[in-house]
């Protein structure tokens, strides 16, 4: 297994290599059984970590408590993070739909 390539395998799988490096590594992995086996093991481990990491769910009572705190309270209509977060979400949807469909 070529050390030159092994050191880049994580970044390769994370999609973080420059296009030229990605192409070179692609070609190497196709031709090198040791690196291909290494890549397979790393891909499986990444998937296993993703699945194992979803471990903790917030209690519904806790979620409700935080939602109550973030919702605008009577008499305090200004500055709620709730509205601001909603504003960001709306902005993101708008950007995602750009350019707008014209009639």
């Amino acid at each position: 297994m070529a050390d030159e390539f092994t050191s880049k395998l994580d970044a390769y799988l994370d999609g973080e290599l420059a296009a030229a490096d990605m192409k070179a590594l692609d070609a190497h992995v196709r031709a090198c059984p040791a690196c291909a086996a290494d890549v397979l093991g790393r891909v499986q481990m990444k998937r296993a970590i993703k699945s194992a990491s979803q471990r903790y769910e917030p209690r519904s009572e806790f979620r409700a408590k935080i939602e109550r705190r973030l919702k605008p309270r009577a008499g305090f209509p200004k500055d709620p993070l709730y509205f601001r977060l909603a504003g960001i979400a709306k902005h993101r949807i708008y950007v995602a739909r750009w350019p707008p469909h014209l009639p």
Binding site: S53, R55, Y56, P58, F62, K65, I66, R69, L85, A89
Partner: peptide, 27 residues
């Protein structure tokens, strides 16, 4: 609520404790 579940999951992984994770997310 955006990111709530993910932040809680991350907080619990960091603290390894439910009560501390809730305090952390609230803060």
């Amino acid at each position: 609520m955006p990111l709530f579940s993910q932040l809680y999951n991350f907080a619990h992984w960091l603290t390894q404790d439910r009560s501390e994770a809730e305090d952390l997310v609230q803060e």
